[in-house]
Protein backbone atom coordinates (compact mmCIF):
# COMPACT_ATOMS: atom_id res chain seq x y z
CA UNK A 1 0.00 0.00 0.00
CA UNK A 2 2.99 2.32 0.02
CA UNK A 3 2.03 3.22 -3.52
CA UNK A 4 -0.48 5.51 -1.88
CA UNK A 5 2.31 7.88 -0.86
CA UNK A 6 3.26 8.22 -4.51
CA UNK A 7 -0.34 8.53 -5.70
CA UNK A 8 -1.17 11.19 -3.15
CA UNK A 9 2.01 13.03 -4.01
CA UNK A 10 1.08 12.94 -7.69
CA UNK A 11 -2.50 14.04 -7.09
CA UNK A 12 -1.29 16.93 -4.97
CA UNK A 13 1.06 17.91 -7.75
CA UNK A 14 -1.81 17.98 -10.25
CA UNK A 15 -3.92 20.02 -7.85
CA UNK A 16 -1.03 22.44 -7.33
CA UNK A 17 -0.76 22.88 -11.08
CA UNK A 18 -4.41 23.88 -11.24
CA UNK A 19 -3.94 26.26 -8.33
CA UNK A 20 -0.97 27.82 -10.09
CA UNK A 21 -3.00 28.13 -13.29
CA UNK A 22 -5.79 29.88 -11.39
CA UNK A 23 -3.40 32.26 -9.66
CA UNK A 24 -1.79 33.07 -13.01
CA UNK A 25 -5.20 33.74 -14.57
CA UNK A 26 -6.10 36.15 -11.78
CA UNK A 27 -2.76 37.88 -11.97
CA UNK A 28 -2.94 38.34 -15.72
CA UNK A 29 -6.21 40.21 -15.29
CA UNK A 30 -8.63 37.64 -16.67
CA UNK A 31 -10.99 38.18 -13.76
CA UNK A 32 -10.87 41.99 -13.97
CA UNK A 33 -13.42 42.35 -16.70
CA UNK A 34 -15.88 39.55 -17.06
CA UNK A 35 -18.16 41.36 -19.47
CA UNK A 36 -16.39 43.09 -22.37
CA UNK A 37 -14.66 39.97 -23.76
CA UNK A 38 -18.03 38.24 -23.99
CA UNK A 39 -19.21 41.02 -26.29
CA UNK A 40 -15.95 41.46 -28.16
CA UNK A 41 -15.79 37.85 -29.31
CA UNK A 42 -19.09 38.28 -31.15
CA UNK A 43 -17.84 41.11 -33.34
CA UNK A 44 -17.47 40.25 -36.99
CA UNK A 45 -13.88 39.95 -38.15
CA UNK A 46 -13.43 42.41 -40.93
CA UNK A 47 -10.80 42.57 -43.63
CA UNK A 48 -8.05 45.09 -42.94
CA UNK A 49 -9.04 48.25 -44.75
CA UNK A 50 -6.04 50.42 -44.10
CA UNK A 51 -3.73 50.65 -47.05
Amino acid sequence: MTIIFLLIGLSLLVALTFLAAFLWAVRSGQYDDAYTPSVRMLFEDEPELRP
Binding site: S11, A15, L16, L19, L23, V26, Y31
Partner: peptide
Protein backbone atom coordinates in the same frame (compact mmCIF):
# COMPACT_ATOMS: atom_id res chain seq x y z
CA UNK B 1 -8.83 45.68 -9.06
CA UNK B 2 -7.69 44.03 -5.88
CA UNK B 3 -6.83 40.43 -6.58
CA UNK B 4 -6.31 39.47 -2.96
CA UNK B 5 -9.75 37.99 -2.45
CA UNK B 6 -9.38 35.82 -5.56
CA UNK B 7 -6.00 34.55 -4.35
CA UNK B 8 -7.41 33.82 -0.90
CA UNK B 9 -10.44 32.10 -2.35
CA UNK B 10 -8.38 29.97 -4.74
CA UNK B 11 -6.02 28.88 -2.01
CA UNK B 12 -8.85 28.01 0.37
CA UNK B 13 -10.65 26.03 -2.33
CA UNK B 14 -7.49 24.10 -3.14
CA UNK B 15 -6.83 23.27 0.50
CA UNK B 16 -10.48 22.44 1.21
CA UNK B 17 -10.72 19.96 -1.66
CA UNK B 18 -7.51 18.14 -0.81
Amino acid sequence: ASHTLYYQLGLAAFAFGN
